[in-house]
Computed example of a mutant assay.
Amino acid sequence: MRWSDFSKLIKLRLTFLVVFSASISFLIGSKVNGDINWFNWGKLIVGGFLVTAAANCFNEIIEKDLDKLMKRTMDRPIPSGHMTTGQALVLGLFMGMAGTYLLGSLNIDTGLLSVFSIVLYAFVYTPLKRKSPIAVFVGAIPGALPPLIGYVAAHEKIDAIALILFGIQFVWQFPHFWAIAWVLDDDYKLAGFRLLPSGKRNLTSAIVTFIFTLLLVPVSLLPTWYHFGGYYVGAVSLVFSLAFLYLAYKLLSTLEIGSAKKLMYGSFLYLPVVQLMFLFDFIGKVK
């Protein structure tokens, strides 16, 4: 098996973003406790990588026939014939069990949340993608679980900070994913995926995307509002949220694929910046 095939099977870039999000939240949770256990941080990164890779692997097994229909996915290892379904299943099961074991060794809640994330993403969200745009709402839950898992891995309980970390990533999922769905709508329709709010690139989909991007503005300010972060994270979050909102407005006013691409790229930048600022500002406050 070639590395390029394995990286496509586990959706390496997506997996990296998930692990990054969880690792930042682990550090925040660790500072609540007073110190950072770097060995456990390493276990979280490896375990989180394996669990996320397994979920993506199961997703590709289930969608192998649909991936053949789309230009962006037809070169994945299973539809291209570089890997059999059986080989992918063995890899997915191994990664899922190993990752769950590592995360569960941190505490039982972290292990249970990781199993819940795999099941919801691979076996609920994945089949829903062809049935209704509600799939995006379902998918936003496992998509927002990484920061919650990372925080619980360090702090061992779900508190207000954990819910804020989850909430920011949950709301962010919608403009992020709908921007991607807008850009790739023609390809998605080849596989029968219905992912835009109205099912089409139209004003309704753009309005819904704008509303959720607007909702992200107050949600991103929750760390400052509840005094978990200071004015630095509040200022940066506000500036980036308003810039993000402007990109959503441009999509609303133009309904063009080019505007959706800018919103998509903006989403890739927005989340890590806000999460890192929360971490740095929180560390400064607890010192």
Rank of each mutant, 00 (worst) to 15 (best):
I134A: 15
I158D: 13
L165H: 11
I134W: 14
G99D: 05
G139Q: 05
G150K: 10
V136R: 00
P127T: 11
F116G: 14
V171I: 15
R76P: 01
I141W: 02
H155P: 04
A88C: 10
E60M: 14
E60D: 15
P147I: 06
A162W: 11
D67V: 05
A179P: 08
A162H: 10
I149N: 07
P133S: 04
A98C: 14
I108K: 11
P77K: 03
S114W: 07
T126Y: 04
L163P: 12
R76S: 01
P142F: 01
P147N: 05
I161C: 11
I161Y: 13
G104C: 14
L148R: 07
I158Y: 12
L120F: 08
Y121L: 04
F177N: 00
L163E: 10
I180S: 06
L112K: 14
Y125Q: 06
Y125T: 07
F116Y: 15
S114L: 04
A88V: 06
D65S: 12
L113M: 14
D109Q: 14
P127C: 09
L112E: 04
V136A: 05
G143R: 00
G139P: 03
L106H: 05
W172K: 00
I108P: 00
T85I: 09
S132E: 08
E63C: 08
L120T: 15
